[in-house]
């Protein structure tokens, strides 16, 4: 065989091999999280709060599963992410429509740059901002502060996905709506947004999955809590935050991996769902 053909085959094989190597960490991470976390997934995991380190140590010493679970984290995550989502969706879609409509204006260019800036902002910096904007004036860490941080994180993602999906619709669609005498508003609500549903919904789901796993800003905004707390003005917990709090406590290991498993399942499911929607 010709040397060039051998070289060609080697390159092909190399690309396939390196690509497969890329997937090794994915499977390694999923394997670790499932193998180490599955043992603690039981009814208590979802219905009880985290035990203190002492209780956990005693249980581990006796070779039992750690009593308790991550209920306060689950409640906290919901209490933080749901309000943030409800606020970010209308504002995000509104902003996306604005950027789509005012495509070439100078204000739109500035806004687009700001949206990109917020999107690229390291989440820990967002934590500082919300600490200064919300925690300091309220004189307390709180679920509200966490929600504000998540809201600001989700906003640019929803804005950009709305704008980009609208932009991918054929231009004559909106012209057709307008030639039928529809107002801008009606054409947007009845034709453009419904046609863009798939893309926008994908953007929203990806934004939700992103903030559910987010931890850094939470350390500076909700602080953490050992008990279930429904008051949004009080410090609270979150599933991701529990992992951070306990990751180097040897007694808590298996509980932490279970929390990681829960988080991973939720996030990957949301991603899969998003992918489905973007195709359908």
């Amino acid at each position: 065989m010709n040397v060039r053909i051998i070289k060609d085959k080697m390159m092909h094989a190399g690309v396939v091999f390196v690509t497969l190597c890329t997937l090794v960490p994915l499977f390694a991470i999923i394997y670790s999280v499932v193998a180490k976390g599955i043992g603690q997934i039981n009814w208590d995991f979802f219905t009880k709060v985290t035990p203190n380190s002492m209780e956990a140590m005693l249980a581990v010493a006796e070779g039992k599963v750690i009593p308790g679970g991550v209920l306060q984290g689950i409640v906290g995550t919901l209490l933080i992410v749901l309000p943030a989502t409800f606020a970010a969706v209308p504002f995000g879609i509104g902003g996306g429509i604005y950027l789509y409509e005012k495509d070439n204006s100078r204000l739109a260019a500035v806004l687009r740059m700001i949206v990109d800036m917020i999107q690229g902002l390291p989440s820990i910096i967002l934590g500082i901002i919300v600490y200064l904007w919300v925690v300091v004036p309220m004189k307390s860490y709180s679920a509200i502060a966490g929600s504000v941080a998540m809201f600001i994180m989700m906003l640019p993602m929803i804005v950009r996905s709305t704008e980009e999906t609208l932009r991918m619709l054929p231009n004559n669609l909106r012209e057709a709506g307008l030639t039928l005498g529809g107002t801008n508003f009606r054409v947007m609500m009845r034709v453009m947004l419904p046609s863009a549903f798939g893309g926008t919904a994908t953007g929203i789901l990806l934004a939700v999955s992103r903030v559910i796993g987010e931890t850094a800003p939470l350390t500076l905004t909700i602080l953490g809590s050992a008990n279930v707390c429904y008051d949004p003005r009080e410090p609270n917990s979150a599933v991701s935050l529990l992992i951070w709090e306990f990751y180097n406590d040897p007694n808590m290991q298996s509980l932490i991996w279970s929390a990681a498993l829960l988080l991973l399942v939720i996030v990957l499911l949301l991603n899969l769902l998003a992918k489905k929607l973007s195709k359908g």
Binding site: N172, L173, A176, P194
Partner: peptide, 16 residues
């Protein structure tokens, strides 16, 4: 526009 309708080069029924 209600009195003067329009048909476009590419057919564009509303996909939704």
């Amino acid at each position: 526009r209600r009195k003067i309708g329009m048909v476009f080069q590419r057919p564009n029924p509303f996909p939704n």
